[in-house]
């Protein structure tokens, strides 16, 4: 080393590198490329899901690999900005699968390295070119058991016919599917969506609809009896029902939705990212995850590691449920969201 930075000239190369690394980090510059990393960054939506990831995926994986996982918030706009600027700080991103499909379409994600990730063990429709689906949750029917006596609405048609206040998510994804199912479209003939028919179906119940914006809000509306019944995500009502809250739900005609994982284009630690992705999709991690939070596994070998009591609470793909078509939504989101917002205001 020369003395041109005003550093003591007999400073070791290693110390200088650490210093430079620290300076680079402080300035927000990319890490030195060939240094072995000791941590990766994953952007998630936070909350209970992130807690479950930490317990069932990050911690066991860190024990194996020696690489720590730190979390940050997963705004799509930041992903786009980082990729555009060529300054990507995230190694992995988690989000709703239909959002990941949009990111993939925009060219913001690396192709999945299926030499590391075991595609053959994954259920149909979960391994995509640029992202993987890591779990199966349900957008399903739930009701307040104080307000709704009897067995509760067992289909979307029952829900739409209910004499009472009905809650739905204020976004077209999933809600359009529910509206079509309520109008009698067979569950295996949903796609491509008949958008006009979906709006006509919702028109019929506009007066009793209460729109919710956030998952936590849907649960609160149901638990407090502010709405009598409505859609929710099963993870939001599973805990309260178990704890004795006046809420019940069914998986009949559930629209299965998923969390997707992807690697941002230009991620600094791609190898580690795919390694952790492969671990997250392994039977052990998938089973541990499903025991922690009631979202079903996408690895076909995980079922064997789960007992029936756990499996009863997990949404599954069967004749009476449908997997959200994320490719359809990646292609049609923009147009349908505009129509949906216009309809909602009208």
């Amino acid at each position: 080393m020369t003395n041109k930075y005003g550093i003591n000239s007999n400073i070791s190369r290693r110390t200088a590198l650490i210093g430079l690394g620290a300076a680079a980090t402080a300035l927000g510059m990319p890490r030195l490329a060939n240094a072995k990393t000791d941590q990766i960054v994953m952007a998630t939506g936070g909350g209970k899901l992130e807690e479950a990831y930490r317990k069932t995926i990050y911690e066991p994986w860190t024990a194996k690999s020696g690489v720590n996982v730190i979390n940050t918030s997963n705004e799509g706009a930041r992903l786009k900005a980082m990729v555009e600027q060529g300054n990507v700080e995230w190694d992995l991103i988690q989000g709703p699968a239909e959002a990941l499909a949009v990111y993939a379409k925009e060219g913001l994600l690396e192709p999945i390295d299926y030499s590391v990730v075991d595609k053959d063990a994954m259920v149909k429709g979960s391994a995509h070119d640029h992202f993987v689906v890591t779990d199966l949750a349900a957008y399903n029917i739930a009701w307040n058991t104080d307000n709704v006596t009897g067995e509760g609405p067992q289909s979307w048609a029952d829900l739409f016919a209910l004499d009472g206040r009905v809650g739905l998510w204020k976004r077209p994804f999933q809600t359009m599917e529910a509206a079509l199912l309520a109008d009698g479209v067979p569950i295996n003939e949903l796609y491509p969506l008949d958008v006009d028919r979906a709006f006509a179906s919702m028109d019929k119940i506009k007066d009793k609809l209460v729109w919710w914006e956030k998952g936590a809000q849907s649960a609160q509306l149901l638990l407090d009896g502010e709405i009598d019944a409505g859609s929710t995500w099963n993870g939001r009502v599973f805990g309260p029902k178990k704890d004795g809250a006046p809420v019940d739900y069914t998986f009949n005609q559930a629209v299965l939705v998923s969390d997707g994982w992807g690697v941002p284009k230009g991620a600094p630690n791609k190898a580690e990212a795919f390694d952790m992705m492969a671990y997250a999709l392994s039977p052990e991690a998938q089973a541990a995850f499903a025991k922690t939070i009631p979202y079903g596994p996408v690895n076909i070998n995980a079922d064997a590691l789960l007992d029936d009591a756990v499996k009863a609470n997990l949404p599954t793909l069967n004749d009476n449920s449908v997997l959200l078509d994320v490719s359809y939504w990646a292609d049609n989101s923009s147009e349908i969201v505009e129509r949906f917002n216009t309809w909602i205001l009208g």
């Binding site: 706009a77 204020k170 209460v210 729109w211 923009s334 909602i344 205001l345």
Partner: peptide, 26 residues
């Protein structure tokens, strides 16, 4: 407004967030 209001209280910020963050139509 998103939590307390109905459809008649859709604010511009909500639409901008949808376009910027979700649909990436900058």
């Amino acid at each position: 407004p998103a939590l307390l209001g109905g459809p008649r209280h859709m604010m511009a910020a909500v639409l901008i967030e949808q376009q910027a963050n979700r649909l990436l139509d900058w």
